[in-house]
Design a protein around this nucleic acid. Structure first.
Lengths: 299, 299
DNA sequence: CACTCTTACGGCACCCGTAAGAATC
DNA sequence: GATTCTTACGGGTGCCGTAAGAGTG
């Protein structure tokens, strides 16, 4: 029994398949498979039930998983506290929404590189639901997603709320035009794809305002969305800070609806069974970075 | 950092020198040295101060020792609980006095092989003080020694008391001869070497009875001692159970001193910093075996 | 047929032991 | 000079990745 074997087993057990686990370990699938098999031989126990299409943990495997998490935690603590180069090290894959990517992701990466120079960061930008899936499969260490997750296996910690406002080009909207009126007039709604958190926010708003049958234009890129808004293609929501700047430049105009969009809570999400120091540290770092940026950018 | 490295470090740190540690690991000294060096490189820390004649733990090394004990314990627990073959496994070197070797050591080994078929036992028979030294150096996992240890690093748990009586051949001693009288008459005292626990017992008795200037014959073998006693070479002490049988056969005669020899407590001794399951299990097994044998042999 | 895991095999790296070296007491 | 630890080096074992195979849904 070696630490490598236990680590391989940990990832094999917590990811949905060996391919993802192997990727997280920078290892080929076959090597991972062999490591796990060697661990099984070494312990004299079957850890995975391979009779079906996919490898499933046996009871012994579940027992070992709890113990190996504890042991690997201990090993990581030793490495972290003994090694002179303080801070985290290794590999960290995480996900953020595009809006986050455009705003404070660079600051987060810069901050992380300062605090943890030996940590290799691998950010992945996608819409919330996709990130949640990848997180659930074990491909990501954490994700920053609008809203809380309803899945039992995923923990959420809200750390910042974002305000969105309805905007449209001046050519589309007068001084007191409302979004509701424009949409009812058939002006298209420009938004991220259905799986995004902001789209859910919009759907909630539409629901409250009893608006159905909206023509939608989905695009998975915020710059493109704002670009379309400025070119009077339709109406859409924009983060309030960005919206202010756009309004100051006279590019877009804020719509005059009385019902405001609810604030959208962004939360740091991670897997419940992932107790590694990496996650805890990064959670703290994200919180600090976000707090700092909010104080600066919205001052 | 690997489990092997941590294990090598553990033994290197707790034994008095690398040679003993290497022996405990079934490893050459150079390989052990390299493993420790690799661990140091891996952690980026110096664990041993090699400036002097011998390698001494640095502060970082002491920190790591506590942590590695914990981690190795965990690993051993995993192996023990997961592996189907229940019971201990590996290598166990221990020491017993010759008297123990002649009486219940075979039963202990038999019992241990029943309970722990995968444990390789390596008993070492020697006098108490030598065993205590070897235990202290890390050559033995535990020892069963007459009396308690006064060393801080060694823990003792008394588990049985043995009675000894003065015996001599009929040709030397009449019905109411006393040992004190015989010794004063110049009859030699036949006993184990000075380092043995029974010899300390004798010295205490001599002290209480104010007997000095005794001619001593030291021999490190009990059979030889009893043999010499039967051949009227001198007087000596014999465990009471054995003494009874010898008296029944008419080979030896119990001497009539009023001051009896104090009971000699045998204790299970192990190193304070050795928290391995091996030691705990064997301690229990020794206690049970000794209890059982006492109930049988002295009934 | 797509997906997931295992087996076969060639190459490289790691680890062990012997033997010699360096440093302390 | 004895003891203790480290370095040099040859040999074998283990581990990785590519590629092919087996089994499921």
């Amino acid at each position: 029994m070696t630490l490598k074997q236990l680590e391989a087993f940990y990832w094999a057990a917590t990811c949905t398949n060996f391919a993802i686990a192997a990727q997280r370990l920078n290892l080929s699938i076959s090597s991972l498979s062999k490591r796990v098999a060697e661990l099984e031989i070494s312990l004299g126990t079957t850890l995975f039930d391979r009779s079906g299409h996919r490898a499933i943990l046996t009871q012994a495997g579940q027992d070992l998983l709890a113990r190996s998490i504890h042991l690997l935690d201990l090993a990581a603590n030793i490495k972290r506290s003994m090694t002179k180069a303080s801070g985290l090290s290794g590999y960290c894959a995480f996900g953020v929404g595009e809006l986050s990517a455009m705003t404070w992701l660079p600051s987060l990466v810069a901050s992380a590189r300062r605090h943890h120079p030996n940590l290799h960061l691998d950010p992945c930008v996608d819409v919330g639901a996709t990130l949640e899936d990848r997180l659930n499969h074990g491909e990501l260490d954490f994700a920053i997603i609008a809203g809380r997750s309803s899945r039992h296996g995923i923990m959420s910690q809200p750390f910042v709320e974002a305000e969105f406002v309805w905007m449209a080009a001046s050519s589309l909207a007068g001084d007191d035009s409302t979004c509701a009126a424009l949409l009812k007039r058939g002006v298209p709604l420009i938004a991220l794809p259905p799986l995004a958190g902001t789209t859910q926010l919009i759907d909630d708003w539409l629901n409250v305002n009893q608006i159905t049958h909206v023509e939608r234009i989905s695009c998975n890129n915020w710059s493109a969305i704002v670009g379309m808004l400025t070119l009077s293609v339709g109406v859409g929501i924009v983060p309030s800070g960005w919206a202010e700047r756009l309004a100051d430049k006279g590019v877009l105009r804020r719509l005059a609806d009385k019902n405001l969009l609810a604030p959208l809570a962004y939360s740091f999400q991670w897997r419940r069974d992932d107790t590694r120091p990496l996650v805890k540290e990064m959670r703290e770092l994200v919180r600090i970075t976000a707090d700092f940026l909010q104080a600066v950018s919205f001052a």
